[in-house]
Structures are given as C-alpha cells and as structure tokens.
Nucleic acid binder design. Structure first.
Lengths: 188, 188
DNA sequence: TCGCCCGATGTCAGCGACTGACATGAGCGT
DNA sequence: ACGCTCATGTCAGTCGCTGACATCGGGCGA
C-alpha cells in the first residue's frame, strides 16, 4: 500500500505539531508544514481537509472508543451514569500522563479558530453518545440532555486533569465532576 | 455621525441575509454582499470581522439580556434555577414568532463553518452565565456546570420552539426541558 | 464664514487557505 | 514486460482577509 516514503500523514501531523509549538498556529503556513514533511501543500490538503484538522486527527478515535464503552456499559445504569462511564473510557486514548494532551490544548486554547473546531468535535461526541443512549432505549430528549451533561462533566474533568500535577487519572476527575453536577442539578 | 448614506451596517446585514437565502452561504461572495449594499468589500470587513459574523450580529444582545436577567433573578434561587430563569429572558430578544430565528437557523444548520461559529457563541454565553453566577456567590465549578446545563436546556427549548407551530413561547419549551434535565440528572 | 480635523469609506496590492485539472512515476498483478 | 492504479507533484486560479494610503463630507473652533 505504501509507495514513495510511507507515513505521509503521520509526518504531516508531526511537522504541523512542531511548527505550531515553535512559532504558533497563524504564523505557520501550510506550505511550511508540507516542506518540513518533505511533501507538497497540495498533498497536505489531500490528507486533511483543513489546516486546523491536523490537530484533531485523534478525535475520531476518542469518539469511537467512548461509543464502544457506552455499548458495553451495564444495562442497569441510568442514562447519565452510562454516558459518564463511557466518557471515562477516554482514559485509554488519552493515556496516563497529561503532558501530550496539555501541550495540544495549549495550542488550541490560544486560537479562537481552533476552539471552534474543538467545540464542533465535542458536539459530534455529544451526538454520538446521544445516539448510543438511544440504542439503549433512552428516549431522544433524555438522551440528548444526558449526553450534553456527560460531555460537560468530561470537559471539566479533562481540564482539571491537565492542570493537575498530582498524577490522578482523568477518570477520577470526571467522577468528581459528576458528583458536582448532581449537586447542582439536584432538587430545586 | 452619519456621512454618506447612513446605516451601512444594517444594509450589509440585510444584503448578506438575502444572498445567503437566495444562493447559499458558500456561493455568496463578500464582494457581492458589499455590492448589493452599495459598499465595498473592504467596508464589509470594517463592520464584521468575518464573512460568518454577519449572521451572528444579534448574539451579543442575547447574551447581554440573559446576563441582565441573571443579575435580576431572586437571590433565593439555586444556581441552576437562576441560570434557567435568565435564559428564559431570551424570549424578549427572540420575539414571539419563531419565523425569523427559524430561517436564520436553517442557513446555519446547512453549513458546518456556521455551526462552528454558533457553538463558540454558545460557549461565550456559557462563560457569561457562569461569571454571573459567580457574582451571586456560586463556586466556580458549580457555576460552570450550572451554566452548561442551562444552555443545554436553552438549546433544546429553542430547537423545539422553532420546530413548533403551536404558538407556545420559548419559555415554555425551556421550562419543559429543565424538567427533563432534572429527571435525567436525578438520583443515580 | 473659513478652514482644520475626524471618521467613514474607497482604492490598491498582497498573502495565504483551499480547489480543480492534469501530469508523473513507482509498485503491483498478470 | 506491460499496463494499471494511486499517491504525489505541478499549475493556475478563486476567495477570504489585511495593511497602507487616499478621499471626502460634516462638525467645530477661530
């Protein structure tokens, strides 16, 4: 399957990541990324629809994993519990150390255009979870709200995780956030 | 204050809206919008940072209104209740009839780039509400989660409102969504 | 009343993201 | 050995967006 030098996509990702870290997202040109990867600008756009998309290549894997975990979750769990358990499975994709994710997030947070892309990916995740809950028999509205809540909880947990040097896992942070959500949404 | 023909900004908005409806967002060029408004492309970009931004001009007013309503909400309300009451104030900006908002939403939903912009506006709203809750003495984490939940509820209410011919107000739909959220997030 | 200044608009040139069309060349099967 | 396929290269062009400078009409002080 590989002609020429294989791994073009990976080289582009690595080159992009390096350059974004070195001189920032806007100051990096797609042509420069391609050059460092010893490829052409045109080839970059054959692998990534967007200049931004190169930073979100792993997102699909995250979603896939979470949806799989949701399908595997015990049937007795409530919609929200199942969704949060699923979201905890992100730990397998994110790994034990927050260093990589933190560096990536630093780049993203510095650029509104990248935050936009991140948000739409998150909404894709919400939709996927809601769909998965639907397959568990949860009504659409409840599924949607549970998915939104689970992702909000995930985001808070993730944020604390990358800001945490204590070496605790994402899952712990996520579970903590869930407790807080329940307090907030508890009886009026 | 007005030299030349006044109301440039408004003319640009109207022209953009018309053209987007006529031939779609991508098929419309900024130069064309400016031409229909009898202005220059350059002038368009002096009024709107973005080609997309022209569709979101009203968003700031919405956020302002909601934040004001939050500040005015009774102090006894829980964080979530206060946030949802605030979000119900969107009715004043949205108006009684969903026709306009529906048309606008149709354009947005058809274009991923516009959905991205919408999402980041929504996150701006979440942040503003969380900040407002902070001023009410709500701890940061709870404020953030309550704001996320309130906006999720708002979105669901809004969605049902524009899909509803029964003439019920946004507020009703929002309140219904809140009830569902409480059921979902209730005891595990 | 005259003339100066300001602020909104116009003009121009240019960069960089992205796309379509076509060319090329290395491996693979036959 | 031949030709097909498919990743990549090449080229030209469109459009979003920006900086620098010009213009011009109205308000305002002298």
């Amino acid at each position: 399957m590989g002609r020429w030098v294989p791994g073009a996509r990976g080289r582009l990702q690595r080159a992009a990541f390096e350059l974004f870290a070195e001189r920032g997202f806007e100051q990096t040109t797609v042509a420069e990324i391609a050059a460092r990867a010893e490829l052409t600008e045109r080839t970059f756009f054959r692998h990534f629809t967007d200049k931004r998309e190169v930073l979100f290549a792993g997102q699909d894997e995250l979603t896939t994993r979470i949806v799989a975990a949701l399908a595997a979750a015990p049937a007795e769990l409530s919609a929200l519990d199942a969704a949060v358990v699923a979201v905890e499975a992100s730990a397998e994709v994110l790994g034990p150390r927050p260093d990589g994710p933190r560096a990536r997030q630093t780049v993203i947070d510095a650029h509104p255009e990248l935050r936009e892309r991140e948000l739409i990916k998150m909404e894709g995740l919400v939709a996927a979870i809601a769909e998965g809950l639907g397959r568990r028999g949860v009504p659409a509205a409840a599924a949607s709200l549970a998915a939104s809540s689970a992702v909000a909880v995930f985001r808070m947990g993730f944020e604390r995780w990358i800001g945490d040097d204590g070496g605790r896992g994402v899952e712990e942070h996520i579970r903590e956030a869930l407790v807080e959500l329940r307090e907030v949404a508890g009886a009026s």
